[in-house]
Amino acid sequence: MTASGELSIGGNSDIVLVRQRVRAAAVEVGLSLVDQTKIVTAASELARNALVYAGGGRVRIEIVRNGVKMGLRLAFDDDGPGIPDVDQALTDGWTTGNGLGLGLSGSRRLVDDFDLRSAPGEGTRVTVTKWAR
């Protein structure tokens, strides 16, 4: 289980690094090529969100097990301003930045489990899991 670990997200080059590490972990878990692509894409969106909206953060990459099923869990944490209205933030096309507003809502569609915790002034934690089929 070498692919597990924590990475800090402090600059653009870290987004590339997150993609590479998540890809390696997804291969290790045995995700299909399409599922690898989905979780790496979600990781790219969430890492960029942490960078753009919170000035940086970190991600914990973890291989998890549920009975006989293996999964890949990514927990993105930041100490940014937090999200006042989580429902609104999860709406397609909603953005306070200059992106497309697909980062959060799109990432949710790409994974099996999605959990978003945030409050103003308390940062944001997004946890996503993709299970091997």
Binding site: V34, K38, E45, L102, G106, S107, R109, L110
Partner: peptide, 14 residues
């Protein structure tokens, strides 16, 4: 474009 990329893009909403 790879098939997995196309599938992911559509699901992402793009």
């Amino acid at each position: 474009m790879r098939p997995a990329v196309a599938i992911t893009l559509v699901e992402l909403g793009l």
